[in-house]
Design a protein around this nucleic acid. Structure first.
Lengths: 123, 123
DNA sequence: TCTAGGGTCTGTAGTAGCTACAGGGTCAAG
DNA sequence: CTTGACCCTGTAGCTACTACAGACCCTAGA
């Protein structure tokens, strides 16, 4: 299952420990014995993680997706909140990038004593 | 000093513990007794952190900035590497945002069983 | 002089999300 | 029957802090 989902074995066990994956039955040799359901669940987790959802959000999504007859407003809500978070991060990084670029561009070589980067960082 | 640099007291002590700040002399009552030099150093650290440099990068910058007669290519290198990192992060987040948006847009309400978000996350 | 309130001190443990061992057990192939 | 590749548990490490507990100190007011 680890290979099928491109997940490290330790990560799978970690997900089990924090309750994202159920404790599976064991083989005679005490190996975890996963079926299709767990594979699907892990794939879901991985895909959501790839989209940047936090483990708490993934947990919520899994909970909501279990009740197939509920309406999907809750799911929509989590996804949109995450989208806003991502937008915020992009904006923050762009602002940071601008500032960093300005600091870097101000330096035109020479010795440290004259370095504008150091100067820009100093108080 | 904590107030002057808008840094939590615990963070200052943390920087001392990991060797970013020197162990300062103590007052009679065992309080840390900081001077101007430490204030400058902490300001430098905070500013660099605000620009997204890692603590390791900050450590390197501090080390390089100590030798005022060296040329500032090393500093330039660290800063530019960080800039590239930031650019990479922005690109990654934008790609993620696109994908996330597509997933969200595909859903037009209804019950969970028909939810395209869940469907898009499932294997 | 006492006391209340703010600060500080050390040390430890917690956060997110894994990752990396150590030291053992299991299993299939040769 | 051994070798090598997997699995098992449990614990500690990573980043960059943050949050206590339980002690101590210092100053201002009654």
């Amino acid at each position: 299952m680890s290979k099928a989902t491109n997940t490290k074995v330790e990560t799978v066990r970690y997900y089990e420990r924090i309750g994202l994956l159920p404790k599976p039955p064991r083989t005679a040799g005490n190996y975890r014995d996963y079926g299709e359901a767990e594979l699907g669940r892990l794939s879901f987790i991985r895909r959501a993680r790839d989209l940047g959802f936090s483990l708490d959000q993934v947990r919520a999504l899994l909970g909501l997706s279990d009740d197939r007859s509920c309406d999907c407003a809750g799911i929509d809500h989590i996804a949109n909140e995450h989208l806003r978070e991502v937008d915020r991060k992009i904006a923050d990084l762009k602002a940071l990038r601008r500032e960093l670029k300005a600091v870097i561009d101000s330096c035109d070589g020479g010795i440290v004593a004259d370095c504008r980067i150091i100067e820009a960082l100093a108080p």
